[in-house]
Amino acid sequence: MLPSFFRNWKGKRKPTVEAIAMKAVIPWTTTWIVISWYSSNIGVLLLNKYLLSNYGFKYPIFLTMCHMLACSLLSYLAIAWLKVVPMQSIGSTKQFVKITVLCLFFCFSVVLGNVSLRYLPVSFNQAIGATTPFFTAVFAYIMSKKRESWVTYVTLMPVVAGVIIASRAEPSFHLFGFLMCVSATAARAFKSVLQAILLSSEEEKLNSMNLLMYMAPIAVAILLPATLLMERNVIAMAVVLAREDMKIVYYLLFNSSLAYFVNLTNFLVTKHTSALTLQVLGNAKGAVAVVVSILIFRNPVSLVGMLGYSLTVLGVILYSESKKGNK
């Protein structure tokens, strides 16, 4: 028998110029989407840090509300007008309640993550955020009795050990910021497990873009009273800052739009590659964010701290591989 290559080639027509061009376009499209995803992810993270810490705009709840307001408007524009994805509707009051519950934990995780950026450098924030698989595995077992293989659980050991090492060696360690970041990471993992449980039926499943479109307005409704109660002078301070320097307005507009772009490119990367590829790229993104943040903010780092973070990333990669092997 002929080798498969020759069998497949034999009798087939030569590919047309149009077909070759199509094949050439696809990789470039995917490449630009991945670059856009990296840029928006790292960009919004660094700009959050700059606004909340360096610029002195110490209002994480209001900042999160701005993000959700932009996501609400831009999501509707992208789905209803630009037809990025088909619009899905909420089928029942029960489904709406489930989405609202998810939104509560989503808001909780984002706000706490922004709070932590006031006290921690981006590099350390990313190291803690890399422990998401650990919390996901714990919550999956507690909430749905979902067991992983022993190999998968073993791979979580370096994930946790790396953060412990990085914490002990972090020159800019702040206990409150650390607790906020760990809580944000746990809340993010809890939300993902809860989402898999609540929206498990085919009738209730929503793609990530539609889910964001419904969650964002609910988030604004939750965050607005929280802002007025806990950050009472934010509007007055924003007006004062805008009068002194109009850049704050542009920063907030750009930062909020970038927050939506993160979700859009996240969806597009998954669509053009796969969920597993997204996970692998996400691991690398964390490392890139660490390097970029150190170059921009010049925060001190130690060799032991970097080794600890590297150990965490290695554990996450091993975890991803063990999960892939179990499928």
Rank of each mutant, 00 (worst) to 15 (best):
M87D: 08
L46Y: 01
I235D: 01
I197Q: 15
L318Q: 05
K58Q: 14
V313K: 00
Y214R: 07
T155A: 04
L314H: 05
L194D: 04
V84D: 03
W32L: 11
T31R: 05
F62C: 02
K323V: 15
K327C: 15
T16N: 04
T155E: 00
L63K: 02
I218H: 04
K327D: 15
V288I: 13
Y119V: 06
V269K: 05
M68N: 15
T93W: 14
K191T: 13
S274N: 07
S302T: 15
K146H: 12
R118W: 04
V111I: 15
I248N: 01
V234E: 02
A19I: 10
L206S: 05
I99Y: 03
A221N: 04
K14P: 07
L74W: 02
S293E: 02
N326S: 15
M306G: 15
S192P: 02
V101W: 08
T131V: 15
G315A: 04
T132G: 06
L51P: 02
T312Q: 00
K327E: 15
L45R: 00
L63Q: 05
L45C: 04
L194K: 07
N41L: 03
S322A: 11
F96S: 12
K58Y: 10
L198N: 04
V160Y: 00
S72T: 12
I99M: 04
S274P: 05
V262W: 02
N233L: 09
L69Q: 00
A238V: 08
T185N: 13
N125S: 14
K12A: 12
V304I: 14
K285P: 01
P300V: 10
L253A: 10
I26D: 10
I142N: 08
F135L: 07
V249C: 07
S274I: 06
M213S: 11
F124P: 01
M306S: 13
I222V: 15
Y214I: 09
S92Q: 05
S208V: 08
I294T: 13
P15G: 06
T132F: 08
A216F: 11
E18W: 05
G177T: 07
I165G: 00
E202I: 09
P158T: 01
N233A: 13
N266I: 10
T277H: 10
V262I: 11
P171R: 07
L268A: 10
K58A: 13
Y260V: 05
S149C: 09
M68W: 09
A187F: 09
F134H: 02
Y38D: 03
Y260L: 08
L51Q: 03
V240S: 13
A140L: 05
G11D: 02
F254L: 15
L224F: 13
N233E: 14
I296E: 00
E244L: 05
E170S: 06
T155C: 07
A24I: 09
E18C: 00
L52G: 04
G91Q: 12
